[in-house]
């Protein structure tokens, strides 16, 4: 990896609101899909209800993504498909550049869209046999992990200050996407009492993800400081504070649920309580805030 004396003279690409929300939903889509899969793989049949919520979440979140991306193209929106097909006269064919995260991402989104749709449908119709379903989920999750993380890599693969000065963004976006997904599913359990058995575990998972996220935030700040562009990040500290508040909330909540389990009490919580609502919303806000802080600090 090349470390650069971080003096950048690039112009900002003006990726703002559409992209911010795309990054958010990509994190939720990929993250939820992965959580659904993990719940099925590791949990017991009682976790199936929560897993379905996860797949139900992943589907619309995935569908929104290309819409946001297309909207971001502005007047060229109708050329969205050029991401996949090269229309250069005399050189037509499919576009795929493994070294360009945006190119890979476009394909990944297409493929993941397929997985998310099938899995959501199946969650509803329940027709696919279990083994096949698991296998399908695992493959889909690989794409889910990609979708949730590549947006961070995409920012890094540029010459923008901050973005290109760190290698932590892909991991950071993934951890935060997973954390946000766990929080969202936990929140949605409100409407699915039969899934409340998974609530504690979701909080616990969220806790782990938050630890990862916190670690990566620290790595991010260290890399940024080393590159000498800390000053560009500082104005956005309030946003970082929200993200950290989300992380702190997750940790507190996770600790509560781990204790409960350890105390051997009935690991079942009757339903979503206020603390879950507050923490989950805070985490989701944190997911958004962290992405905003990263996006804005370069532009």
């Amino acid at each position: 990896m090349v470390y650069l004396a971080a003096e950048h003279f690039a112009s900002p690409p003006q990726w703002t609101w559409y992209i911010l929300f795309y990054f958010f939903f990509a994190g939720i889509a990929g993250g939820s899909y992965v959580l659904g899969t993990l719940l099925r793989l590791s949990g017991d049949p009682r976790d199936e209800a929560a897993a379905r919520i996860a797949f139900y979440v992943a589907f619309p979140a995935t569908v929104i993504c290309p819409l946001l991306l297309t909207a971001d193209l502005g007047a060229s929106w109708w050329k969205f498909w050029h991401m996949l097909v090269d229309v250069t006269p005399g050189d037509t064919g499919l576009n795929f550049k493994y070294w360009s995260p945006m190119s890979v991402g476009a394909w990944a989104l297409l493929v993941f869209g397929f997985f998310a749709t099938v899995s959501a449908l199946d969650s509803w119709l329940r027709v696919v046999p279990m083994l096949l379903n698991r296998l399908f989920n695992i493959v889909g999750s690989v794409f889910g992990l990609f979708i949730a993380s590549y947006t961070g890599v995409l920012l890094s693969v540029s010459n923008q200050p901050v973005w290109s000065d760190t290698w932590a963004l892909g991991g950071l976006f993934l951890a935060s996407g997973l954390s946000g997904s766990a929080a969202l599913i936990a929140l949605l359990i409100r409407n699915r009492p039969e899934a409340s058995i998974s609530l504690g575990r979701l909080h616990q998972a969220d806790g782990y993800f938050s630890v990862l996220e916190l670690a990566l935030i620290i790595v991010f700040f260290i890399t940024i400081a080393v590159a000498g562009v800390l000053s560009r990040v500082l104005p956005w500290l309030p946003l970082w504070a929200i993200a950290v508040a989300g992380i702190a909330g997750s940790l507190v909540e996770a600790r509560g649920h781990t204790r409960m389990q350890a105390a051997g009490g009935s690991a079942t919580v009757a339903g979503v309580r206020l603390d879950t609502v507050v923490v989950s919303l805070l985490v989701l806000l944190g997911v958004l805030a962290m992405r905003a802080a990263v996006i804005f600090s370069a532009q």
């Binding site: 193209l73 502005g74 007047a75 229309v87």
Partner: peptide, 12 residues
């Protein structure tokens, strides 16, 4: 061919 994604702007 260009569809306005602005990735090139971030890169240049």
């Amino acid at each position: 061919v260009c569809n306005g994604c602005r990735n090139c702007i971030a890169a240049c």
